[in-house]
Structures are given as structure tokens and as C-alpha cells.
């Protein structure tokens, strides 16, 4: 199983730092020939996951850091994002597609992560999320 990227890093609570990591992961997925839709989905999920960690988890606190662990192989992209915040109850996020919530700007980030990733898993306290995308081969796309 060829590995295209593997690292673990801690970054400050700064969205620009998050962007740089995002680009590194996306470049590895492109090198591993993930489909454009997979890459699109991962960029979206990373954006939501990193913004959640930096803004909502660490509340932009410069003393707090975000840990990112990444593995991109030819079959899977697996990213773990952990912040130093108190976490949140991810079972208690309102359904953004419910009629009464449609015009409320909340809950959509997590929903998009779930829609585009093969797996999204939070730890119990809600300050760590695992994003996994299995590579779709051209054969599977055609079927």
C-alpha cells in the first residue's frame, strides 16, 4: 500500500495555518489520484473540521493548539483533528435539513462532512474528529 503522505503536526489556533495543512493533504490526495469529487469532499470536510477545531473548539486562543494526524495512501485518506477545547455533544446538533431549521445557519458543517466522507467519527467528549475517505476506483464510479 503506497503511502503518499503521513504526518502528525500541532498547529496554533490560526485558520491560515489550517489552510496550509489543508493544501498539503489535498496535494497528496491528488498525487494518489483520488477522484475530483473525493478531493472536493475532503477539502470541504477539512475546512469544516479545522474551522470547528480552531474557532469553536479552541476559540482562537493563541495558547491552544490543534493536532492533526494524516495518512494518505492509494486506498484511503485518513485525517484526525483534535483541539484543546471542552468538546461538544455531537449528538445534540440540530438537524439543519428540518423544515424549522432550514433558514438557520447551524449544523451544516457536520452534515457536509458526513455526506462527503466514508466515515466521520467523534470521540466521546467531542474534541476529536476522524475523517476517512476511501478511494473510489474508476470501476466503482462507473457501476
Amino acid at each position: 500500500m503506497p503511502i503518499y503522505e503521513q504526518f502528525e503536526i500541532q498547529i496554533p489556533s490560526d485558520t491560515a495555518e489550517g489552510q496550509a495543512i489543508q493544501e498539503k493533504i489535498i496535494a497528496a490526495m491528488e498525487a494518489a489520484e483520488f477522484s475530483p469529487r473525493d478531493v472536493f469532499g475532503m477539502r470541504l470536510a477539512l475546512e469544516e473540521g479545522l474551522v470547528n477545531a480552531i474557532k469553536h473548539g479552541n476559540r482562537m486562543d493563541p495558547d491552544k493548539r490543534v493536532r492533526i494526524a494524516c495518512t494518505v495512501s492509494d486506498v484511503i485518506a485518513s485525517i484526525e483533528i483534535e483541539d484543546e477545547g471542552p468538546g461538544f455533544d455531537w449528538n445534540d446538533v440540530p438537524d439543519p435539513t428540518a423544515e424549522e431549521n432550514l433558514d438557520r445557519p447551524c449544523g451544516r458543517g457536520i452534515m457536509l462532512m458526513r455526506a462527503f466522507m466514508s466515515k466521520v467519527e467523534y470521540n466521546d467528549s467531542g474534541n476529536k474528529v476522524l475523517l476517512e475517505k476511501l478511494r473510489v476506483t474508476p470501476d466503482e464510479t462507473a457501476s
Partner: peptide, 11 residues
């Protein structure tokens, strides 16, 4: 590309 925060602005 656009994120959920951008969707919020559109709403």
C-alpha cells in the same frame, strides 16, 4: 468551493 459559513451568508 464554498463552506457552510458561506451558506449561512446566502441564507
Amino acid at each position: 468551493y464554498l463552506s457552510s459559513a458561506a451558506l449561512g451568508k446566502l441564507i
